[in-house]
């Protein structure tokens, strides 16, 4: 083969690749790589409150004490918390919802979130308030919030701003209630070793798939691929991470707003006198007793409770722990109201 032929042999693969652009299947088509949201699939249970259509379900008698389950992330969804549905069989009205921009709920643009500036977190408080209002059947109906991780931060912030609206909180490992604590926890709970598989899996993907900042199907898919095992926090070690669909724009916008405006999730908690059950886990190396004591300090009446043998968020997903530890403890707490 002469040298010019060699050159063509090398250029041929690129030419073939460029010529192979017939339409076949799109990564940004809803339902291909990630599930459709409530906006694309009318069969998904949903309500529209505060300008957002939220994926939500409620179980139990409508007039019973309301237990609102708030998922973590930001940008995760309530699938991992579905064991809490069993509380309905114990006489409670259990309400689940995917926060706006998360799970199967409606997506919003990054520009929309950014336009709210420092008020972005308040939007999520307002969504929660509207959700409670939607399901409340009578003025005397008690409301207890269960918040996991970011959901715990959101629950605390909501209780501080509306202390009369909430009769109790059960939170599990909120990263922090002061922004400095959040930043420190995030730093301690992630491995940033340059040679680690986790970091390279997270960064290597960017040359395969890119999406505009509002191409939610693509961005949510990429975020979902990153949500694997975390050896530091123990998340996903003893039970699989369960989710429907991540919310990447929501996640990035809330983290960005946090870094820029440093929201205080403990604001108003000095006025919140209701009991707080505070879970932390043995296998979360970044969330041991001293850290739990520090984060929970703004609560006036708090009970710290360590769940052994599992890591972050796993008190809801590991069946044996849920049945033998988490659920009985929650029921004891709920029965005190």
């Amino acid at each position: 083969m002469n040298q010019k032929n060699w050159l063509w042999a090398f250029l041929l693969p690129g030419a073939l690749a460029l010529a192979s652009c017939a339409k076949e299947r799109l990564i940004n088509e809803p339902g291909n790589l990630v599930p459709k949201t409530v906006m694309e699939d009318a069969s998904i249970p949903a309500i529209t409150v505060n300008g957002a259509t939220l994926h939500t379900e409620a179980f139990g008698h409508p007039d019973s004490t309301m237990v609102v389950v708030i998922h973590g992330g930001p940008g995760s969804d309530y699938r991992a918390l579905l064991n809490c549905k069993e509380l309905a069989q114990e006489g409670y009205r259990v309400v689940f919802y995917d926060q706006r921009g998360s799970g199967l709920s409606e997506r919003f643009s990054a520009d929309f979130y950014e336009s709210l500036g420092a008020e972005l977190v308040s939007l999520f408080y307002d969504d929660l308030h509207a959700l409670i209002g939607h399901y409340r059947t009578h003025p005397g109906q008690k409301v207890i919030l269960i918040g996991d991780s970011w959901g715990g931060m959101l629950a605390a912030g909501y209780a501080g701003r509306r202390p009369g609206e909430v009769q109790g909180l059960a939170v599990s490992e909120p990263g922090g209630l002061k922004w400095d604590d959040v930043a420190e926890y995030v730093k301690r709970s992630r491995s940033f070793k340059l040679w680690s598989e986790i970091l390279n899996d997270a960064t290597y993907l960017d040359q395969f798939i890119t999406g505009d900042e509002d191409e939610h199907q693509i961005l949510d898919y990429k975020m979902g691929l990153h949500s694997s095992v975390n050896e530091i926090t123990g998340e996903g070690v003893h039970a699989a991470n369960l989710f429907w669909r991540n919310g990447a724009a929501c996640n990035a916008s809330l983290i960005g707003a946090g870094q820029e405006y440093e929201p205080d999730f403990s604001e108003g908690l000095d006025q919140f006198g209701a009991p707080v059950l505070f879970f932390y886990t043995e296998k979360n190396a970044a969330y041991q007793l001293p850290w739990a004591q520090k984060v929970s300090a703004p609560f006036r009446h708090v009970e710290l409770f360590e769940i052994t043998g599992v890591g972050h968020s796993e008190m809801y997903t590991v069946g044996q722990v849920w049945n033998n530890v988490t659920k009985p403890k929650l029921l004891t707490f709920l029965q005190s109201f």
Binding site: S20, C21, A22, K23, E24, R25, L26, I27, G31, N32, L33, V34, P35, R79, G224, A240, N241, L242, F243, W244, R245
Partner: peptide, 13 residues
């Protein structure tokens, strides 16, 4: 397990 309906295969453009 998270999304049983995911579609494998070639994606383009």
């Amino acid at each position: 397990e998270s999304f049983p309906g995911v579609i494998d295969g070639w994606y383009e453009p």
